[in-house]
Amino acid sequence: MNINQNPIILNVDNLHASIQDTEILKGINLTVRSGEIHAIMGLNGSGKSTFAKVLAGHPDYHVTQGSIQYEQQDLLELSAEERAQAGVFLAFQYPIEIPGVANSQFLRLAYNTVQAKRGKEELDPLEFDDFVREKMKLLEMKPDFLDRSVNEGFSGGEKKRNEILQMALLEPKLGILDETDSGLDIDALKIVAKGVNHLHNTGNAIILITHYQRLLDHIVPDFVHVMEAGRIIKTGGKELALELETHGYDWIHNDQKRAAGAST
């Protein structure tokens, strides 16, 4: 674990969130500073994806308690599009297909909307074409990607690469990758990881949500958090992921029991 005194990008305090009166998140605390990579691991149903959606502003989830500070703003006051414009990016576990809308059209619309909101220059189709093709090289994407409808008929790997391409275009301060590794073969995983590593710098932060240690071989986290039943129950460095891989999630319970036993 490295000691980082960079500015805090995200501060989550005692976050509780529900969907249709069912509480999913039950008091999450998390601080993310710029330059950091955090991995959140946990079993299915532990609340990892819900946490990602709450950060991105999904309207179905209601925050019932706690707060989220993002870059000195109350994130919960912002709509999903305002969060995106402010630099929060969620790479979806299941990206949506939009038949009939060309990927190039969609990417440029998103890019220019966000650029305009940030007071930066918008690009016309020709300029954008050059710009996006440069970014696509990073992810080893074929040029015909641009002409196809958004995610329609894309393989799992292509969809995930398209998500990272969007991240590359929108240049977020906080990138949240929701199980970006699921369904990827090892080659695609390496390409995606290379892209993420390339985009990561001291001015931004990344939260990786994953089941598996595999991704963390390629994107090395500064912190690993384990979620269970809507809470972060253990935090450690990158070695925690390895221990989980070796011992399984039950190991944490035993570990906690031992810790509890030792303190009495």
Binding site: H58, S79, R83
Partner: peptide, 10 residues
């Protein structure tokens, strides 16, 4: 939600 999370308004 997907489109809004890319900065597009409702």
């Amino acid at each position: 939600f997907y489109l809004k999370s890319r900065g597009l308004n409702e």
